[in-house]
Amino acid sequence: MTYKAILNGKTLKGETTTEAVDAATAEKVFKQYANDNGVDGEWTYDDATKTFTVTE
């Protein structure tokens, strides 16, 4: 399944996708990606669109 992350960081804005077996696995991948890029904020998840959003 393909999951998407939308990054609304102070220094990084954009989107990325990952293939994962479930939302929990995708969330770990996206949170690591955000952390590696200095983005730390509030996370939300929309199951209907399989989209995570982080906003700083």
Results as ranks from 00 to 15, higher is better:
M1I: 14
T2P: 06
T2K: 10
T2C: 13
T2R: 09
T2E: 09
Y3I: 01
Y3D: 05
K4V: 10
K4I: 11
K4L: 07
K4C: 08
A5M: 15
A5V: 15
I6E: 05
I6D: 04
I6A: 03
L7C: 06
L7Q: 01
L7N: 02
L7S: 02
L7A: 03
G9E: 03
G9M: 10
K10W: 11
K10E: 08
T11S: 11
T11P: 04
T11F: 14
L12Q: 08
L12T: 10
G14D: 09
E15N: 06
E15M: 12
E15A: 09
E15W: 14
T16I: 15
T16E: 05
T16P: 02
T16R: 10
T17M: 09
T17P: 01
T18C: 15
T18R: 04
T18N: 03
T18Y: 11
T18I: 14
T18G: 02
T18P: 00
T18W: 08
T18D: 02
T18M: 09
T18L: 10
E19K: 12
E19I: 15
A20N: 03
A20G: 03
A20V: 04
A20R: 02
V21C: 13
D22M: 03
D22Y: 02
D22C: 05
A23W: 14
A23K: 13
A23C: 13
A24M: 12
A24G: 08
A24E: 13
A24I: 11
A24L: 10
T25I: 08
T25M: 11
T25K: 05
T25Y: 07
A26F: 01
A26T: 01
E27Y: 15
V29P: 01
V29F: 15
V29E: 07
V29D: 05
F30Q: 00
F30S: 00
F30H: 01
K31P: 01
K31E: 04
K31A: 05
K31N: 03
K31T: 05
Q32T: 08
Q32H: 06
Y33Q: 04
Y33V: 05
Y33L: 08
Y33W: 15
Y33R: 03
A34K: 00
A34S: 04
A34I: 05
A34V: 07
A34M: 08
A34F: 11
N35G: 09
N35I: 15
N35Q: 15
N37S: 08
N37V: 14
G38C: 08
G38V: 03
V39D: 01
V39L: 13
V39I: 14
D40M: 13
G41K: 02
G41A: 03
E42N: 10
E42M: 12
E42V: 14
W43D: 01
W43C: 04
T44D: 09
Y45T: 00
Y45G: 01
Y45K: 00
Y45E: 02
D46Q: 04
D46Y: 04
D47C: 08
D47K: 08
D47R: 07
D47S: 11
A48R: 10
A48G: 08
A48L: 11
T49Y: 05
T49N: 08
T49R: 06
K50M: 09
K50F: 10
T51P: 00
F52K: 00
F52V: 01
F52A: 01
T53D: 01
T53Y: 13
V54W: 12
V54L: 13
V54C: 13
T55S: 10
E56G: 05
E56Y: 10
